[in-house]
Amino acid sequence: MHDVTKVAIVGSGPAGLTCAGDLARMGYRVTVFESLHSTGGVLRYGIPEFRLPKAILDFEVESIKSLGVEVKVNALIGGSYTLEDLFKEGYKAVFIGTGAGLPYFMGVKGENLNGVYSANEFLTRVNLLKAYEFPEYDTPVKIGKKIAVIGAGNVSMDCARVSLRLGAEESWIVYRRSDAEMPARAEEIENAKEEGVKFSLLTLPVEVLSDGKSGVRALRCIKMKLGEPDQSGRKRPVPIEGSEFDMDIDTVIVAIGQGPNPLLPRKTPDLKVTSHGNIVADPQTGKTSIEGVYAGGDIATGAATVIEAMGAGKRAARAIDQYIKKL
């Protein structure tokens, strides 16, 4: 009788689920640990129903479970439970796919006013907790008449479109560079425009103005122009002096990007991270600085794509299999 080898997966986003499925097919006993109460990562809490029906996600998760993968929700690794605990519990290898879940803020005055959300908070309320069905569902979301979404990535387009669907009268994308530099996919930008999302480009928010109670009255911005190319190769936006103006806004959603979730690396001093806090992992195998620990998806690459995350999960599954066979 040979023991079936146990492998732990941390995070149930596309990277973790793909890795789990592949390892289960190879005959491993796989357990997925997910900190939220539901699986799927960004596919569940970030990407809205109208772009990715949750029934499709549920189907995918069920088919992975039917391979024998055990999924533990409400299981945070890197808080009170550590990677070390997993090895103690007999897991022979661990794959970390914890994603880019740390919301960045602008650091401007007024950003803590009521009426300012991070994209993550806004989307989690709406998608994960179904605030669009409040009060049938208990989680509230408060949406004003005029929304400004800061940033122009896929996440921003989703926030702007969700706002309109929740009944906002105006929904603006406020972005400091121009049309050509918007990081969102062309298709997403097109869809947003078709639904009536407006664009204020070459516009940098410098302050969120209070309505004197606790809400937002306006977004103070400065106009930008494009200068010399910066490190990213894109033309650097520079403020035009004296061009401040106020946008009439009552809700602000900050969608300027997400960083790697720092919880697990913080609790795992031996795990090497980049200056941005991403886990250092071999792009071919996902191998990290700790033996038996692999990582992939947004936690390693920074915010990227579903396909890339799945690819990383697949490659890591192969590498984990080879690693365990050599033990």
Binding site: S35, L36, G79, G101, P103, S118, E121, N261, P262, L263
Partner: peptide
């Protein structure tokens, strides 16, 4: 609070 794990920022304080 919402998630309780540092991913939404709604519990931010100064």
């Amino acid at each position: 609070m919402l998630d309780g794990t540092g991913m939404c920022g709604c519990c931010r304080v100064t």
